[in-house]
Write a protein that binds this DNA or RNA. Structure first.
Length: 300
DNA sequence: TTCCAGTGGT
DNA sequence: ACCACAGGAA
């Protein structure tokens, strides 16, 4: 008896066609999987690959990262984007050491309580690192399920509780099979059922896809406003951080002033970096990455 | 809802 | 130029 369910067919396809990604190897630790999931939040696979390996080489355990400075985490983050994730990931390592004896927790509730770990990442770790049965819904899974099952273009900008329910209903009962199916559906969305140019001819479930049957209706509703970058605070933050990342220790504000002409906007961007725990003021008029420089003397 | 960065594909 | 990308938090 071959499994003809949606999850069964996608899983069979996955076992034959999955990309050979290093964090999918069976011997990879929960910590390594957690790092991959955080890096993959809004950053494409190709750019995560080298950074993930570098982080693991340097910080093989949560305790190792927790013992290093936020500044080093920010530097090792490189140009993956959204560098707040680097600080949160280190905060996460600290929390894992303090609350869980240095081991990545396996309960959803505990995972969700960690910094930088939300609905998606918590379930991804529980499923992929610990083999539990949870709906793992990222933008790919949401798109696949909306299309194939509901026959609709997409579910909107964010994952809703209904998306979790709809995905959970597709999962096979056995936890290990469910975790495999979750990875398979995600892979299908990443490789075949893409947002822009879906390759329905190569899809393992094209025969039972509601979206394809209905003629691949295009999304209608109010389109999201384009995310500008040039001239925004985000660009200024990027420039400031780039300078601080390359420097060791404090950088005088006169040098920071040179990266952007608008005083008001530059000050706002810098203040934002401080608020986000990426940068700290040093002395009268200098700034540095948080914790950069010599460690504070141990006093006891 | 909005902000958060950075890059490559189309 | 525009958009998509294994989201999370205020």
């Amino acid at each position: 008896m071959t499994d003809t369910t949606f999850a069964g067919q996608v899983s069979r396809w996955y076992e034959e066609n999955a990309r050979d990604l290093p964090w999918r190897k069976p011997e990879v630790s929960p910590w390594a999987i957690l790092i991959s999931e955080v890096m993959l939040q809004q950053t494409p696979v190709a750019r995560v690959l080298p950074a993930w390996q570098a982080w693991l080489d340097r910080w093989p355990t949560p305790a190792a990262l927790a013992g290093d400075s936020p500044a080093e985490a920010i530097r090792m983050w490189g140009r993956l984007g959204y560098p707040r994730r680097a600080v949160r990931l280190r905060d996460c390592a600290v929390a894992i050491v303090e609350r869980h004896g240095g081991e990545v927790p396996d309960r959803l509730e505990q995972l969700l309580a960690l910094p930088g770990v939300g609905t998606y990442t918590a379930r991804a770790v529980a499923a992929f690192a610990y083999g539990q049965r949870h709906p793992v819904v990222d933008t790919n899974v949401r798109r696949v399920v909306c299309r194939a099952i509901a026959g609709e273009p997409d579910a909107g900008p964010a994952t809703r509780p209904a998306d979790l329910v709809a995905t959970e209903e597709l999962l096979p009962p056995e936890p290990a099979a469910a975790a495999l199916a979750s990875a398979a559906i995600m892979e299908l969305g990443a490789v075949i059922c893409t947002a822009r140019s879906p390759r329905c001819d190569a899809c393992p479930v094209n025969a039972i896809c509601a979206w394809r049957a209905s003629g691949r209706v295009a999304p209608i509703g109010p389109t999201r406003r384009p995310q500008r970058y040039a001239g925004t605070d985000r660009q200024v933050r990027g420039l400031l951080l780039g300078l601080l990342r390359e420097s060791t220790g404090p950088v005088p504000h006169q040098r920071l002033d040179q990266v952007w002409a608008d005083d008001v906007q530059r000050a706002r961007a810098l203040a934002g970096l401080v608020t986000d725990g990426l940068v700290e003021p040093i002395g009268e008029a200098s700034f540095r990455l948080v914790g950069d420089g010599p460690l504070a003397p141990v006093t006891d």
